[in-house]
Computed example of a mutant assay.
Amino acid sequence: MASPTLAAGAYAATQRLASPTAGKAVAGAGAPNFAEALGNVLQSVAETGQRADQQAGRAAAGKADMVDVVTAVAESETALETLVAVRDKVIAAYEEIMRMPI
């Protein structure tokens, strides 16, 4: 059965990216940089989607419980919605920076 906390973990990872102290880490101090953190979040969302696809395939073959399929699809949907929300925030921040006078 897929873990229902995976989507919550992806959301927490994106929250850490958006925290005010995220940019204050010293380079080389063991903290992941933005690109690594973003890559980890994207990988997590992709893995969630793959699990949902696998569960749907197993259900089509009659080898999976529908509760597991629904849970996997819901986790995938939540992770994707979180990713889209983060993307929207990044775009809004970029637009705000572009409006700043030089």
Rank of each mutant, 00 (worst) to 15 (best):
L83I: 03
R51V: 15
L6F: 06
M1K: 02
P32M: 07
A8T: 08
E81D: 08
G62N: 07
S76Q: 13
A64Y: 10
A8Q: 11
Y94M: 11
V41S: 00
S3K: 04
A37Q: 09
F34N: 01
T5Q: 10
P20R: 09
E47D: 11
D53C: 03
R87P: 04
P101H: 15
L6M: 09
T5K: 15
A18T: 00
I91C: 05
G39R: 01
S3D: 15
T48L: 15
L80Q: 14
F34P: 04
A52K: 00
V90I: 15
A22R: 06
A27N: 07
M98Y: 07
M98G: 00
A2F: 11
A10Q: 14
A56P: 00
A8E: 15
A46F: 06
E77A: 05
P101A: 09
D88S: 00
F34G: 01
P4N: 08
A85P: 05
I97T: 11
E77N: 10
A92P: 05
I97Q: 15
R16A: 01
P101S: 11
L83S: 01
T48A: 15
Q54Y: 08
G30P: 01
T82V: 13
P4Y: 13
G57R: 14
V86W: 06
V70W: 03
L17T: 02
S44P: 01
Q55H: 01
Q50F: 12
A8M: 06
G57W: 08
T71P: 02
A64L: 01
T71K: 08
E75A: 03
R16W: 09
Q50K: 14
K24W: 13
V26S: 07
A92N: 06
E96V: 04
A37G: 00
D65Y: 11
R99W: 10
Q55T: 07
Y94A: 11
A7D: 12
R99T: 15
A8R: 07
D53Y: 07
S76R: 02
A56T: 10
D65G: 01
A37T: 12
T14P: 02
E47G: 03
P4R: 06
T78M: 10
G30E: 15
N33G: 12
G9S: 10
R51C: 09
A92K: 14
M66Y: 13
L38A: 10
A12E: 13
Q50Y: 14
A59I: 12
K24I: 08
G9K: 08
